[in-house]
Design a protein around this nucleic acid. Structure first.
Lengths: 343, 343
DNA sequence: GGCCCACGGGAAAACTCTTTCCTAGCCTAG
DNA sequence: CTAGGCTAGGAAAGAGTTTTCCCGTGGGCC
């Protein structure tokens, strides 16, 4: 209790048993220990305030209780919602969650993955949409394979195509369904804040939306698709650019909610009313953003649940060779930010 | 590269040097190693794909690169903003962040702290307002002292009074200043969503607001102070309760932004306009909530910076005996959610 | 030329556990 | 009554690093 650590050896000595016996009592191995010694050891451990050295255990067992979680930016509510799901599951299992934030840098992602490997992390959950850049995907795949070779499990959220289990939203279908609902509202001309060109998720949502328009015989004018950062400020800035050149659209689809938030702010700053002057729709249904006014029409994803299921894939299942993929359907939620066009 | 791990011993053998030399080259100890051997070792390490076993290092050095971060709920934007600041600093330092979420349970908090101790974490940052419950504060203080005895540093955000360095907002002054500004706007009757009764932060903000009212010769009617959970839903529910009995207030102060968000939603559901029928003010200035309409009058806290500075306190400073306290002033930001009263 | 010291290298101990292997004792079956 | 098997306990061998301690060489100084 005084200072520093108390080791298992001290506990064993204090209890008058061997190191082996003390270890068996305290971690509960397969081997039996008589009740008499068992009591002595637990009493000594309690008295001395023993706390096992996790590093030593990891080294001896060659398996740790660390689980990694990689996100781009933890202050983004999309990621923090998913993170909440992951933490819930890992904490239930008594595991320790390591949070890595990549800031959208593949290099940083690689560094963190290596660190987790160095710690013999049991599993890692990768969140965040994959780039379509072949080279960085190849490198990430290689990192993942190394991780798995060393006995770790990997699960991804929102990034199919990697050699790992995946929980992914059906972006294409969700966006298409949203488009159909907006068309049903009477919209014919759309503008899209399409996010970065090289982002898988953004592209799928754009494609889904686009294909539903085509299915309804509608065109999507080239000048009505504007690319930009996948963030609130990206949405703001993209909208400013869109409106600067002018648009004939009656409805603006931002490929995620945080961009839609930026869009609404930009429109407000331009003196335009939503939905009277322009309808706005998003994607994700971020809980924190549900209190925006007008409330955002969007595609609801069960973000926390997705995080939880990814953690389950990584931790509960038997390591399989073929990646398992869980697809979750988004559900369109119509709220006040979209309304039938007035012109 | 094939499978499993490659150890330092293998690297040493491959390079034709001793284990000691290999270790010195790779971690860069104080001891010099000749350029010739240095090159051989680094070449071998690269060729074999060597990655140090972090547990073994921790064990041998008796000091790890883990840093803990404890929050109540990572999906709450207040915590995720602070977390972003903490991650920024830890990642800069090449450290590994362990995220623990307590769900506001002191017991869970103790468990996580013990786990971090078991991992010989170098430091831990505790975020989240302290309860005023003596017993749980005493237990937490004891945990902190154990942590520090084992060579770990502890820093807190928003919970002064513990035996650890602290970054804390000046809640009292901020709330008082806010009150004065609202009085200057013409408000005379206030209602307060005061949060939980046993939460230090909530209490300080209530007190500060209250004392400014007293200073201006204003009374705060008892029925205009309503307690409830420190969350968005708590704010919603508290507002419903307040309005159910009716209030003569022209301005509603919620002791944090997420509660104010719930309040605005409740008022909207009741058909009341903000600020025309009732002004609303919050506290924190959560970035994600800046896009609410009407934009929230609030007290801005530099949340991310607070997280970063807490991490700095925990990591950079020399462990001192007397806790250092950094107080950050909040700045009142007047936006559209408050306006001069119409009656 | 001898002495001392600095320097670079390696052997081995240390770090704290887990787990294998060995042994003594007891029980049972033949 | 003894061989064989089972049980509970302990000694010791790891696990992969870091670090201490020791040794040989070479250089500087008188």
């Amino acid at each position: 209790m005084e200072s520093g650590y108390v080791t298992l050896e001290q506990v064993a000595e204090h209890a008058g048993v061997s190191l082996a016996t003390a270890s068996r009592v305290i971690n509960g191995s397969t081997r039996q220990v008589s009740q008499r010694l068992r009591d002595k050891v637990t009493a000594s451990a309690r008295e001395l305030g023993y706390l096992a050295n996790a590093s030593a255990q990891t080294l001896a067992r060659n398996s740790s209780s660390l689980v990694g979680l990689l996100v781009h930016d933890i202050s983004d509510p999309y990621f923090s919602s998913i993170a909440a799901g992951v933490t819930r599951h890992t904490e239930e299992q008594g595991l320790v969650l390591v949070l890595g934030t990549t800031g959208r840098s593949a290099q940083q992602e690689g560094r963190i993955l290596a660190t987790l490997r160095a710690h013999r992390a049991r599993a890692v959950v990768l969140v965040g949409s994959r780039s379509t850049d072949e080279e960085s995907n190849r490198r990430l795949s290689e990192e993942i394979r190394m991780f798995r070779r060393q006995g770790g499990q990997v699960a991804c959220v929102s990034q199919e195509g990697l050699p790992a289990d995946t929980v992914t939203p059906d972006n294409h279908t969700g966006a298409a369904e949203l488009a159909r609902r907006l068309i049903a509202q009477g919209h014919r001309e759309f503008a899209i804040l399409a996010g970065p060109t090289d982002l898988q998720t953004a592209r799928e949502r754009l494609d889904g939306f686009h294909s539903a328009l085509s299915g309804a015989g509608l065109e999507l004018a080239h000048h009505n698709v504007v690319h930009g950062a996948f963030t609130r400020d990206g949405g703001y800035e993209s909208t400013r650019r869109l409106m600067a050149v002018g648009t004939d659209a009656t409805c603006l689809f931002a490929v995620n909610d945080v961009m839609a938030t930026g869009a609404m702010a930009a429109l407000r700053d331009l003196g335009l009313r939503v939905p009277a002057d322009l309808s706005v729709a998003g994607f994700d249904d971020i809980p924190t953003l549900r209190d925006l006014t007008p409330a955002l029409t969007t595609v609801r994803l069960p973000l926390e649940e997705m995080g939880e299921r990814a953690a389950m894939l990584a931790l509960d299942g038997e390591p399989e060779d073929r990646p398992r993929v869980i697809t979750v359907r988004g559900e369109v939620v119509e709220r006040e930010s979209t309304a039938p066009p007035t012109r």
